[in-house]
C-alpha cells in the first residue's frame, strides 16, 4: 500500500480500481486497463478527463457529428449523474453491465431503461414505433406505415400480457426470457480481453511520475 503515492493528478470522477472492481465483474487490472481506454476516449476532443457526447460519437462512428437515437440513449444512461459527461466511475460501472459475466437481470433492466425513452417507467407503443422508425431511417429502409403498425401491434400483443397498452418491467423481463436474442446487444465480448487490447502500465507510470 505504501509503495504508491496517492497525490498524483487524477481526472475528476476518478475512482480507485479496487472500489470499481468490487462493484463490477472486472478485476482490478481490467479496471486499470479500462482507465487507459478511458483516458484515450476522454481526451479525443476536449482533454479534460471526461467523455463528452461528441467524443462518444467520434469513437462509435468515427464522426463527432453523427447522431443516433440509440447511441444517444446509451450515452445518457452511462451519464448517471446527468451532467452531460461520462466520468470514469460511470464508465466502468456501465460497461460492467455489458460484461459477458454480468447478471442477466442487470442487462434486462438496462435494456428496459434504454427503451423507456420518456422515462415513464414503461415502454409505450409510441416509443416503440419511434424506435422502429429511427432504425428504418438510419438504414434507409422504407416500410409502409401499415407494416410498421403491424410489427408494433404484434410485438405488443406478445409482450404486453396485461393488455394495458404499455410494457412494464415485469412484462419486459418475461418477454426477454422468452426471446433472449433481445439482449444480445447487452454483451460485449471485447470486455473479456480488455487487458490485452489496452494493457495497463498504471503501476510503473505512476511510480515514475511521482519520482521525477
Amino acid at each position: 500500500m505504501g509503495c504508491y503515492p496517492s497525490k498524483q493528478v487524477k481526472t475528476p470522477g476518478y475512482e480507485e480500481p479496487t472500489v470499481l472492481a468490487a462493484e463490477t465483474p472486472f478485476t482490478v487490472s481490467e479496471v486499470e486497463a479500462l482507465y487507459e481506454l478511458f483516458k484515450k476516449l476522454s481526451s479525443s476532443i476536449i482533454d479534460d478527463g471526461l467523455i463528452h457526447k461528441e467524443e462518444f460519437q467520434l469513437a462509435l462512428f468515427k464522426n463527432r457529428n453523427k447522431r443516433n437515437l440509440f447511441a444517444d440513449r446509451i450515452f445518457d444512461l452511462f451519464d448517471v449523474k446527468r451532467n452531460g459527461v461520462i466520468e470514469f466511475g460511470e464508465f466502468v460501472r456501465s460497461l460492467g453491465i455489458f460484461h459477458p459475466n454480468a447478471p442477466v437481470e442487470d442487462k434486462i433492466a438496462f435494456a428496459f431503461r434504454l427503451y423507456d425513452l420518456r422515462h415513464t417507467g414503461f415502454i409505450e407503443r409510441e416509443e416503440l414505433k419511434e424506435m422502429v422508425l429511427a432504425l428504418l431511417h438510419e438504414s434507409d429502409l422504407i416500410l409502409s406505415d401499415d407494416v410498421i403498425e403491424q410489427i408494433v401491434d404484434k410485438t405488443f400483443s406478445d409482450a404486453d400480457t396485461k393488455g394495458d397498452g404499455k410494457i412494464d418491467q415485469e412484462e419486459w423481463k418475461a418477454f426477454v426470457l422468452k426471446h433472449p436474442s433481445l439482449i444480445k446487444n447487452m454483451t460485449l465480448p471485447y470486455l473479456k480481453d480488455i487487458t490485452i487490447v489496452f494493457p495497463s502500465f498504471v503501476l510503473s507510470s505512476e511510480v515514475e511520475d511521482s519520482e521525477i
Binding site: 462509435l60 437515437l69 440509440f70 455489458f98 432504425l135
Partner: peptide
C-alpha cells in the same frame, strides 16, 4: 407479420459499442 420490433431495433449502429475498443 412475425417480425419482432425489438429485434428490428437491435440492428441499429447505435448499439455497436465496438468502436470504443478500437485502437485510437
Amino acid at each position: 407479420c412475425n417480425l419482432n420490433a425489438f429485434d428490428i431495433i437491435s440492428f441499429s449502429s447505435g448499439f455497436d459499442l465496438s468502436g470504443l475498443f478500437e485502437e485510437k
